[in-house]
Design a protein around this nucleic acid. Structure first.
Lengths: 165, 165
DNA sequence: ATATGTGCAAAGATTTTGCGACCCT
DNA sequence: AGGGTCGCAAAATCTTTGCACATAT
């Protein structure tokens, strides 16, 4: 119920250490550390791409042929709810459109996921420290400024008015 | 078939001028400028949010009660293919996952839509010229570096080798 | 032992498509 | 007139859920 503490994995740990981190976080969150979940998490650790649920399902099936797609979806949701894994974009699920087809950026509320336009000239200074990897032809940066929108931030602000001590 | 010339709308034009821009681009692209398409485009122009196909369908139905959802989807695709409108994110459609739950960025190929991780410390210097709008609590920037990946850039490079004249 | 997870299959949601009638140029 | 579009409905995808049995702690 409470917002999960967002313990972050260390990208430079080796796979077995990451698996241990995963089991520890499951215990902390009161989640049974099932075989299916461990296989799923390991498959995600070993993925160099950014797999879809279906792709993840195929990989898990190599170890657990009887696993069901429903279980994969359920556990993905559990993992996300507990901050154990990340999703590449907050905007999956349904196509979102805009008449403005010129480059610009967005403010995104992490709570209600509403989006607000940010004119191109409002974002400055983006650069890659070491440039793009060899072979990648960089065209432009698209920036999302994540945070809480005014409506979603209100409850937090109200804490200044209601004494909780 | 050829990559559509990406004529961009001017965000500061008024609505009727934008409608004219839309009709001109339809003619240029050889697209019949049907009543449905004009109503759809106007609905997108007037939207302050970033509507989904379903939301757009509801708005178009106010003007054309007989319109079908299939038409809305078909025309959305046509508009996108011709660069007449934008989509908020390249990653709709299916959830994409990653074990790395610590903040980082992505390289995204606009052709094959493959993604590659970009460690957080590779991206520098992002800032908002005038800061976030009042009430928005900014937490972090998420950057997508868009371009062509090595694999998709190859055909372009080859044009230097095969004489086409 | 008990609460939770799992497999299966059906339901729900989102998006695409085939077809005949109709509209834009 | 002719090619593309529209409305309709069925199909294809993607995701969630109810239930009976199995598993983790």
């Amino acid at each position: 119920m409470h917002p999960a503490r967002q313990f972050r994995i260390q990208p430079d740990m080796d796979v077995e250490r990451k698996m241990q981190w995963f089991r520890d976080r499951c215990v902390e969150a009161g989640l049974p550390c099932t075989h299916q979940r461990q296989v799923m998490y390991r498959a995600l650790l070993e993925a160099v791409d950014h797999p879809s649920p279906e792709m993840l399902y195929e990989r898990v099936k190599r170890d657990i042929p009887s696993v069901s797609l429903g279980t994969v979806y359920r556990n993905i949701k559990t993992f996300l709810d507990n901050g154990l894994i990340g999703e590449v974009s907050l905007h999956h699920g349904s196509l979102r459109l805009e008449a403005n087809n010129s480059p610009h950026h967005h403010l995104v509320c992490r709570s209600c996921r509403r989006m607000f336009d940010l004119p191109a000239d409002q974002v400055e200074g983006v650069r890659l420290r070491e440039g793009p990897p060899r072979g990648f032809q960089l065209e432009r940066f698209v920036v999302e400024a994540h945070g809480l929108c005014a409506a979603c931030a209100v409850p937090k602000a109200r804490r200044n008015h209601s004494k909780t001590t």
